[in-house]
Design a protein around this nucleic acid. Structure first.
Length: 684
DNA sequence: GAGTCAGCGGTTTTT
DNA sequence: CCGCTGACTC
């Protein structure tokens, strides 16, 4: 094996890559060669004789896992490696553990993974009055804080939260009964198993002696605890992340994991990767200025390695049409000058802002791709097929059965389903079993004669299909269509063409899977795709449009960020976190390599109304425009407000006394107290 | 049970 | 403005 893979690293990168034992925190700024560093470390560990099977690398997305695997394998001489190191997403790792050790929780390992949509449907069926977004997020929070329904109930003070805890309990029972597992369970259940069986926990910890985690700033409480268990015998945990790029707080990630890493794990070595190889120094300069306004950070400044450029522009437009016109013009010029469309991207904080852009691009005849729309597996027709396949592998899956019991339409409506549900609860048997076991006249008593006949015919087809599946999984797909005519049910639908194309693609995909994995069955396929979001191919040469969240990890030579207006970016109001908004701004700016254009408008048409807007504070904070003019001068101040002074920098208000139009403020500037009039202060 | 229409609410997204 | 939900009719 060649060891010269280290030679292309800079000193800090090398320092991190050659670290062997003990905990390591790599603070990797945007564009600082993060992936290169940890893939090199992986190769390095193997090159010095550490058993690849003892190295575990965890990522968040399949995309990151694939990219890392590719890059790591290109560094390793495959002939040296017997077992490749395990490199996968957190959830995939959880799934593997559950497949092996589910019995520790007295559950069978033929469970089915449900997605967010399934979860919502189940919750809705348990309680249709409580607001669904609250329910889903609260239950997720409970699970991520390892709170059982009983504990959640005990902790609930308000009636609302008692109700939520109640639904949580029913939801958990439902999952257990149907042997379903949600995404949170893929982390929670392994954790429970490791808590329950200490011997096993130690064995696993011994097995995975070297653990690496990517994007550590996006881990949640549960992931941290799981990691703790896994490192309990060695403390060889290497995490990579950037506290300034933590943008998933709203879905449970806790930035504290990375901020407190050195306290969580003893004798941590910290390596900062601050050299940025991506952007011009001008761009970096503005990114740095912006993020400086945050308080909760470890503190790190990106150092440019590229030349300074005249590379940042601000566009001011009266409305979104003018904004679009300017961008379309710029994009046209870039393309004419020979730039590749795939080197150009437009980012926005809110997906709704893509509309006027899309119109403008269409009018101008420019092709574009909108990243992150409806996912393949979220399409109704695909979900229907998955539901069909699920009931074939898991008879307990009432939920999937109900989804397809009337698809294609066979005259079974809500009332009938309700009756079956009631009977299912009464007899404590899954609907599938009822339909199978009850004699036709018994079933008639539940749902009526006509429905009974329909359902019996339906069941006979399902059972036939099950048999075919056992005999030959390849023949099964044809039999499926022959029996249920699912594809042809879209023959005359208005959007039938697209849907049938999706169905064909899906069938093709399954066939391919069966060919690739002759020893694996339908059940394996289902669990595989549950964790998979399609990686849209980046081969098309088109201009990309996407949310800032979707842009994470990507880079573009020419970047436009639109919608820099208060309310759109940053979003303000409850549930929004200004520091996280600012990190989003930082992520957005640091996607740009050569040219960056930031755009704001005076008014925008949104939610059916035209709203007048003021420019984003981020424009002044990043030093792109002279600020203060648009900052509200007569706003009120109170204790705890974050403020900024031209000379003294950022501080927090300790006391505010009204003095005429102004306030007299006592401000704490990093330990230094000063009294300053509010007219000299910018509110953050 | 299936199709139609008013009314409501509408950050960010991966697994 | 646009898409989804739920009440209402055939």
């Amino acid at each position: 094996m060649s060891n010269n893979f280290l030679s292309s690293l800079n000193d800090s990168q090398k320092n991190a890559a050659q670290h062997i034992d003990g905990s390591l925190l790599i603070l990797a700024g945007a564009g600082s060669g993060k992936t290169k560093t940890i893939t090199t470390r992986l190769a390095y560990l193997i090159s010095i004789g550490i058993d690849p099977a003892s190295i575990l690398t965890l990522t968040f997305t399949n995309k990151a896992a694939t990219e890392m695997r590719d890059r790591a394998y290109s560094l390793i001489d495959p002939s040296m490696v017997n077992t490749p190191p395990l490199l996968c997403t957190f959830h995939k790792f959880g799934l593997l553990l559950l497949k092996f050790y589910m019995s520790e929780l007295d559950r069978k390992n033929n469970f089915i993974i449900i997605d967010t949509d399934d979860k919502k449907r189940i919750l809705k069926s348990i309680d249709k009055d409580l607001p669904l977004p609250l329910l889903t997020s609260e239950i997720s929070k409970y699970k991520n804080s390892i709170l059982s329904p009983t504990e959640a109930k005990a902790a609930a003070q308000l009636k609302l939260y008692q109700q939520i805890a109640d639904v949580y309990e029913k939801y958990e029972n439902y999952l257990q009964k149907n042997n379903l597992v949600d995404f949170d369970d893929l982390l929670l259940l392994p954790y429970k198993i490791l808590c329950k069986n200490e011997k096993l926990a130690n064995e696993l910890s011994e097995k995975y002696k070297y653990i690496m985690v990517d994007e550590y700033q996006d881990t949640n409480e549960l992931q941290y605890k799981l990691l703790r268990k896994l490192c309990s015998t060695h403390n060889n945990l290497c995490v990579v992340g950037d506290d300034d790029q933590s943008i998933y707080g709203w879905r449970g990630a806790t930035i504290r994991n990375i901020l407190n890493f050195t306290e969580h794990f003893e004798n941590t070595k910290v390596v900062k990767l601050e050299e940025n190889y991506r952007s011009t120094t001008t761009i970096l300069n503005h990114a740095n200025q912006l993020i400086e306004h945050n308080r909760d950070r470890l503190g790190k400044t990106l150092i440019g390695t590229r030349v300074d450029g005249n590379s940042v522009k601000v566009y001011e437009s009266s409305d979104e049409n003018e904004e679009t016109r300017k961008i379309v013009e710029d994009v046209k010029k870039l393309l004419l000058s020979g730039e590749k469309a795939s080197d150009i991207a437009i980012l926005f904080r809110v997906n709704a802002l893509s509309r006027s852009l899309e119109e403008g691009f269409n009018k101008a005849g420019l092709s574009y791709k909108l990243v992150g729309g409806m996912k393949f597996y979220e399409r109704a027709e695909i979900k229907d097929l998955i539901a069909y396949f699920r009931i074939l592998t898991n008879n307990n899956d009432n939920f999937s059965l109900k989804r397809i019991i009337n698809k294609p339409k066979r005259g079974i409506g809500k009332t009938t389903i309700d009756k079956l549900d009631a009977k299912s609860i009464e007899t404590k048997k899954p609907i599938f079993q009822l339909l199978e076991e009850l004699e036709p006249d018994e079933l008639s008593q539940v749902v009526g004669k006509k429905n009974s006949r329909t359902l019996k015919v339906f069941m006979a087809s399902v059972m036939d299909l099950k048999e075919t599946l056992e005999e030959s999984k390849m023949r099964f797909l044809d039999s499926f269509e022959d029996t249920f005519d699912y594809r042809s049910s879209y023959d005359n639908a208005p959007d039938g063409f697209d849907r049938q194309a999706n169905i064909d693609e899906f069938y093709g995909y399954i066939r391919d899977y069966f060919i690739q994995h002759p020893h694996l069955g339908l059940e394996d396929f289902l669990n595989e795709i549950a964790l998979e979001s399609e990686n849209s191919e980046f081969s098309d040469d088109m201009v990309s449009m996407m949310s800032i969240h979707a842009s994470k990890g990507l880079e573009y030579k020419h970047l436009f960020i639109i919608g820099l207006e208060e309310g759109f970016f940053p979003i303000i109001g409850d549930g929004s976190d200004i520091e996280e908004e600012r990190r989003l701004g930082y992520v957005a700016i640091t996607r740009a390599m050569d040219n960056l254009t930031m755009s704001f408008v005076h008014s925008r048409f949104y939610k059916g109304k035209r709203a007048s807007l003021s420019k984003s504070r981020f424009l002044s904070e990043s030093g792109l425009i002279k600020g203060s003019l648009t900052i509200e001068k007569n706003s009120t101040y109170k204790k705890g407000d974050l403020v900024k002074h031209k000379i003294f920098g950022m501080g927090r208000v300790q006391k505010a006394v009204k003095a005429g139009k102004d306030y007299k403020l006592t401000i704490n500037f990093s330990g230094q107290r000063r009294d300053i009039l509010s007219s000299f202060i910018e509110k953050m």
